[in-house]
Amino acid sequence: MLLLADALDEFQSAPSARRARRILLDSAATQVVNTELTGAAIWQLFDAGSASAVKSGLALDRHWRNARTVSSHNPSVYKAALIGDHTVNGTAPRSFLNTAAEDTDSRA
């Protein structure tokens, strides 16, 4: 199985609509999983550290803020809906990758 980065490299060397869809779906799935795992890990960090974990000198809150920022800029609920819509209805995910692939496909 290719890593997402490898799939992106393949897309850059030979763009296609099929590769664009696969990358978008794999990226969305990765973001959904990462949001869940990061949230659980941060909760455990604060749970294990108890009151000490919120001391400003440790600055552990920056990890939670960073994780939350990434999650809020890429809402997992939308990513999950994108995956579900594709799985149930066959709807192609839309992105700039599709446009790049369509441009390349039309020139071929």
Rank of each mutant, 00 (worst) to 15 (best):
D85C: 12
G57N: 02
N98M: 11
R68F: 08
D9S: 15
V88A: 05
R68G: 00
S76M: 08
W64E: 10
F11L: 01
A59S: 12
A53I: 05
P93N: 02
T69A: 15
P93H: 00
S56P: 04
D6C: 01
R107M: 04
K79P: 03
P15K: 03
Q12S: 13
G90R: 11
S95H: 15
T69Q: 13
A41D: 00
I83T: 09
T87G: 07
P15A: 05
L45P: 00
G90T: 07
G90F: 02
L37I: 11
R107A: 07
S27E: 14
R62Q: 07
S72G: 08
S72V: 14
A53M: 08
T38E: 06
L2K: 03
T87R: 15
N98I: 08
P93I: 00
A67F: 00
D9C: 12
T35Q: 12
L8A: 07
A14W: 06
R22M: 13
N98V: 06
L60E: 01
S106T: 06
W64F: 11
D9G: 14
E102M: 08
D61P: 00
H73M: 14
T69D: 15
L2C: 03
R18I: 05
L3T: 10
T38C: 10
S52I: 02
G49H: 00
L97V: 04
G90K: 11
T35I: 06
L25S: 05
L8V: 09
I83D: 15
L37R: 15
K79I: 07
T104P: 01
